[in-house]
Amino acid sequence: MQPARPLVGQVVTVFRNRLRPEHEAAYADELAVVAALAREMPGFVETKTFTADDGERCTVVTFADTDSHRAWRDHPRHREAQRHGVADYYAEYSIAVGETTYASAFVRD
């Protein structure tokens, strides 16, 4: 499957975190539910998660525009998962959100 091409106006969230080891299983269960919900949201483009050698995780989530991103940010089930993350899952996290002002892509045939 080809990656989604970036487009000007898309909203990209970069979510960096480290999990508390004793809660990894519960986190994985909740993540499965919340990620499936995100994929069903209008304006959802893609999400990918990467894990660094030192255990830090980075999830990049893209929505088509500000309104669709805001709807996801404020979704009650997503808010519930955020509360669980702070209370239980994360040792630390940071979030950066930005609107794409320039976009380019290359795919070798």
Rank of each mutant, 00 (worst) to 15 (best):
Q2K: 13
Y102H: 15
A32M: 00
G55F: 07
R39Q: 13
P76G: 06
A25F: 04
K48F: 12
F44G: 11
H23A: 12
R57K: 14
T49Q: 13
Q82N: 12
A71F: 09
S94V: 11
I95L: 09
V107R: 08
V61E: 00
E22W: 03
A52I: 12
F63S: 12
C58R: 08
Y27A: 05
F50M: 13
E24A: 04
F106T: 07
E24Y: 04
R16V: 04
V14R: 09
A35Y: 04
Q10K: 06
E99A: 13
T51I: 08
T13C: 11
R39L: 14
R77S: 05
V14I: 15
P21D: 02
C58N: 15
R20W: 06
N17C: 09
R16K: 12
T13S: 03
A91G: 01
L19F: 06
E30Y: 00
H69L: 15
R20Y: 15
H75A: 00
S104Q: 14
Y93N: 10
Q82K: 07
A52E: 14
P42L: 01
D29P: 00
A38C: 01
L37V: 12
T49F: 03
C58V: 05
A32V: 06
A64C: 15
R83I: 13
T66R: 12
T13H: 05
F50Q: 07
E24H: 02
L31T: 10
M1E: 13
E40A: 11
A52D: 10
Y89A: 06
A32I: 11
A103I: 12
V8N: 13
K48Y: 14
A28W: 06
R18M: 01
V45K: 14
R70K: 07
Q2S: 15
G98E: 08
Q2C: 13
E80I: 06
T47H: 11
G43M: 04
K48W: 15
L19P: 03
S104H: 09
D88F: 03
R77C: 13
P21L: 03
R83A: 08
Y89H: 05
V8R: 11
G85M: 00
D54K: 08
G55W: 08
A4M: 11
E22T: 01
E92L: 10
G9F: 06
R73W: 11
P21M: 02
E80D: 01
R20S: 10
V60G: 15
R18Q: 01
T59P: 11
Y102N: 14
A4Q: 13
L19M: 04
A38K: 00
A32S: 04
R5E: 15
V14N: 13
Q2W: 12
G43R: 07
P6T: 02
E80Y: 03
S104F: 15
P76F: 02
P6E: 01
A105V: 05
G85Y: 01
Y102F: 14
L31H: 11
V45D: 09
H78V: 01
A26L: 06
W72S: 04
L31W: 10
A81Q: 03
E24T: 03
E56H: 02
E80F: 06
E22N: 00
